[in-house]
């Protein structure tokens, strides 16, 4: 063993890397390349597939045929990302700054859903949101809701499922970035007369709340004005109570790397998800993941399915890059500024 390695010291890292990287090259990189090739196939599983550049038309055809599902995936993923952010930020903040002795227990509770099966968790929401389930049943009995009202098979059910399933992906990175903040920075800001932020906090809360709720309203086709009003009111209350100058100028900017990571960690799987739409939705809530899954595994329409997956991957790369440009550089300078 020894002599060869002592004579060729420079080889050691490559020998360590080789097996794992070859595995990734063979079963990640090469398949991705093959998928691109397959999108230029024509033919069926029975007759065999033939490659031809002429088949580039698969792309515009697939986009035209499934543009609606692509659009829906983007909207649902956006809605789920907004919702996970709204739910996760105060949760992560409380665990990081007010967790005390319960910090580890709370963190455990955040990841506990991962200890049960993803499919069973999603199916559990089908029970919870059921037409006579624990949420709708009592409301209907009290006469507050029309007996025919349902959540299942609506965009709300699908987005709720995605939100729940990917919530820990938003909470953990935000928690980590908040936990890392040097508490003395916050104290220093307060020593330098950072106090309650008025009316700034109220205004910012109202604008952000109104904007995000309005967006959600537009996605779910609710009354947008009503949603903006609700969001602005809630945002103003939360902004008044929660947004201090030190939070706005120290804590929040320093937590942006976590928000950035969390957004991507939720957005990426949400864009490709088909489990939530399949279990909680109906044909009118079909996402692009459902189309890709059916095209591949039911119809064996490999060319179209490959083209769709490739477009999805490319779209995600564009989103990640643009997002990194928009938020990433500012983040980097904020971190460097310490």
């Amino acid at each position: 063993m020894g002599t060869f390695l002592t004579r060729h010291r420079g080889m050691v890292p490559y020998l360590l890397l080789a097996p794992g990287l070859l595995w990734l090259a063979a079963f990640y990189v090469y398949p991705a390349f093959q998928m691109f090739i397959s999108s230029f196939w024509s033919g069926t599983l029975e007759t065999g597939f033939r490659f031809s550049l002429e088949n580039w038309r698969t792309y515009p055809a697939a986009l035209e045929r499934y543009g609606e599902q692509f659009g829906r995936s983007i909207l649902y993923a956006l809605a789920a990302t907004i919702l996970t952010f709204l739910i996760a930020y105060p949760l992560a903040y409380t665990i990081a700054f007010r967790g005390g002795r319960a910090k580890n227990l709370l963190l455990f509770l955040v990841v506990a859903p991962f200890f049960t099966s993803f499919l069973l968790r999603t199916f559990a929401w089908k029970i919870i949101l059921g037409d006579d389930g624990v949420v709708l049943g009592p409301l209907k009995d009290l006469g507050l809701l029309d007996p025919g009202f349902r959540l299942l098979a609506t965009p709300i059910a699908v987005v709720s499922g995605i939100t729940y399933n990917f919530l820990p992906f938003m909470t953990l990175p935000i928690y980590v970035s908040l936990e890392k903040i040097d508490r003395r920075l916050v104290e220093a800001a307060q020593d330098l007369y950072a106090g309650p932020w008025r009316p700034g906090g109220t205004i910012v809360g109202a604008v952000v709340g109104g904007g995000l709720f309005g967006l959600l309203g537009a996605i779910f086709a609710f009354d947008v004005l009503l949603m903006v009003g609700l969001g602005a009111t809630a945002g103003a209350v939360v902004g008044t109570g929660f947004l201090s100058e030190s939070f706005a100028r120290v804590t929040f900017p320093l937590s942006l790397p976590g928000v950035f990571a969390g957004t991507l960690l939720v957005m990426i799987p949400a864009l490709g998800d088909y489990v939530n739409a399949a279990l909680l939705g109906n044909p009118s809530t079909t996402m692009i993941g459902n189309v890709i899954q059916t095209r591949f595994l039911v119809n064996a329409d490999y060319p179209t399915a490959s083209a769709l997956s490739f477009i999805l991957m490319a779209a995600i790369l564009v989103v990640v890059t643009v997002y990194a440009r928009l938020l990433g550089t500012e983040n980097a300078s904020a971190v460097r500024g310490i």
Partner: peptide
């Protein structure tokens, strides 16, 4: 490059990895 190759699979939607493996196995 190694770091990139380690990072990219974690940033790829599962459906894309599953689909690309399937096309390779079929090919």
């Amino acid at each position: 490059a190694t770091n990139l190759l380690i990072f990219i699979p974690m940033a790829t939607p599962e459906i894309v990895m599953g689909a690309s493996l399937l096309t390779m196995f079929v090919a």
